[in-house]
Write a protein that binds this DNA or RNA. Structure first.
Lengths: 269, 269
DNA sequence: CGTCAAATATGACGATTCGTCATTTTAACA
DNA sequence: TGTTAAAATGACGAATCGTCATATTTGACG
């Protein structure tokens, strides 16, 4: 069960290790932690997250315990609590992992060769793909917004979450700005760019959240999973007046091309 | 802290009491539980939910425990576990309470005197009002969709949740059907009524969920809370082609009238 | 009104799980 | 190789969960 080997992991994402262990009377000579060790810690954190994700996926959130994580990893409880100061903090970390994956997918999606509205759809395709391929991770984003988790996870991780969320929205801002510049999107009087971005975010988040978590309801299961996000987006983007409108362009075709060109054979991970 | 008195509560919502205690060798004469007692049980369940909600609101989900519920009520642990077979089951019950309140508000909203699109907005207004006035309860709906809760709450409650959700969507179906009949809404070729209802659901749910749970993010906090739901809805409904379109009608005015006529002085609860 | 059996309430208890901390181990640097 | 700070360990106390044997209450019936 235990995963043996991992590629090196970006250290900048490492948790703030040892934060409460600063010696009261610190010597003037502070021994710098070696890069090698730092790397080892970052790798281990990634390893722990993978194991945690597997456990959550197979046994469910409810049955996931820190003790099980301990038993399924090669580390001790104390070590694990050096990384995550509570179970909720770990959920928060999974949420961050999810956001980072999203951002990565989004950037890949933005390379789609097409008009501005098609690029927007590419992002949404990536979002949906993420939610469906990795529902555990996607649900972590949802769970992390839950008071139960927010209240007990470390301030550092909450801040990181916020940072990443902001980064995502800024990324989307860019898409809309481009569309405004090339004239395919024109702000209606009284409308703001911000509110358009928020609308798209709310719509796509709501769509994914309902599909993943309430997919069993027959109101939803009767829909075509692969097209729900596209259909919803088309309604909204038409409403914004983002050209070409859906009756002037075959976006179903676009959807297929996005899948083929960006997300087959050569997936970005 | 303990609440003393409650009005009578609909018994049909009572949890399936005593379900695992059927005597192995049941006598032929099954003594019927008196209506009075049934009522008492239903009342108590409502009372417990109110206390639980207060506790969650003041101390947060994370710090809410069944022991605290026990201490803050006049009943013992065993009695409480007769109502809710786990902490998660209780969350589920709160979710059901929330859905019932929503449905009630929606029905009240549907009495708004206006065209079909205005009625739709009235529903959304009610939805937003609920989310903002009672965020704890609204978040319960979110939490209840979380695997942690789904996995541990009783099948009966999960079923009830599903039932209520279905009832809400059918209610929305009605709105759309009316609009189709009076011609203010025309299905685009290839579109289905189902997917339009789902789109509106996803949009409004996503909007509320983000506003309530991520409201601290400055991307969101810069928006006008009271109008976000309206603005998003207008974009979407314009995209559906639901007449009168937002440039042909002053829906901001409608929004104000909804508030005044339906939700001031004489609120439905 | 008194009796009795079924329904319901109680809270002590065992089992988990959480998170901590005194101690041991590791590894960087001289 | 020796020294010392950082990091790992796992036993432990506290808190919570959910159960169950026992006590109490209810109300149908004589």
């Amino acid at each position: 069960m235990t995963i043996r080997h991992f590629n090196k992991v970006d250290q900048s994402e490492m948790s703030f290790f040892c934060k409460n262990r600063s010696t009261k009377e610190s010597k003037c000579i502070i021994r710098r932690v070696s890069a090698k060790r730092q790397q080892a810690i970052a790798d281990r954190e990634a390893e722990l997250l993978v194991i945690a994700e597997q456990l959550v996926a197979t046994e469910g959130f409810a049955n996931f315990t820190m003790d099980k994580l301990t038993n399924n990893s090669s580390y001790s409880k104390g070590t694990i609590y050096n990384h995550f100061n509570s179970k909720e903090d770990l959920i928060s970390a999974l949420c961050i992992k999810s956001l980072k994956k999203e951002l990565c997918l989004f950037k890949h999606a933005a390379t789609f060769a097409g008009n501005s509205r098609e690029k927007c759809l590419a992002i949404l395709y990536a979002y949906q793909k993420h939610a469906f391929e990795d529902p555990t991770l996607f649900m972590c984003v949802l769970s992390a917004k839950t008071p139960a988790v927010m209240e007990k996870s470390s301030p550092e991780r909450l801040e990181r979450q916020e940072e990443l969320t902001k980064e995502v929205t800024q990324f989307c801002d860019g898409l809309f700005t481009d569309a405004l510049e090339d004239g395919s999107l024109v702000l209606k009087p009284g409308a703001e760019l911000n509110s358009l971005v928020f609308a798209m975010w709310a719509m796509s988040f709501g769509t994914n959240a309902l599909m993943v978590s309430a997919g069993a309801l027959d109101t939803i299961s009767r829909l075509d999973n692969r097209l729900a996000q596209l259909d919803n987006a088309n309604l909204l983007l038409d409403g914004m007046g983002w050209h070409p409108l859906s009756d002037q362009w075959n976006y179903r075709d676009t959807w297929g091309r996005i899948e083929q060109q960006l997300f087959t054979n050569n997936p970005a991970t």
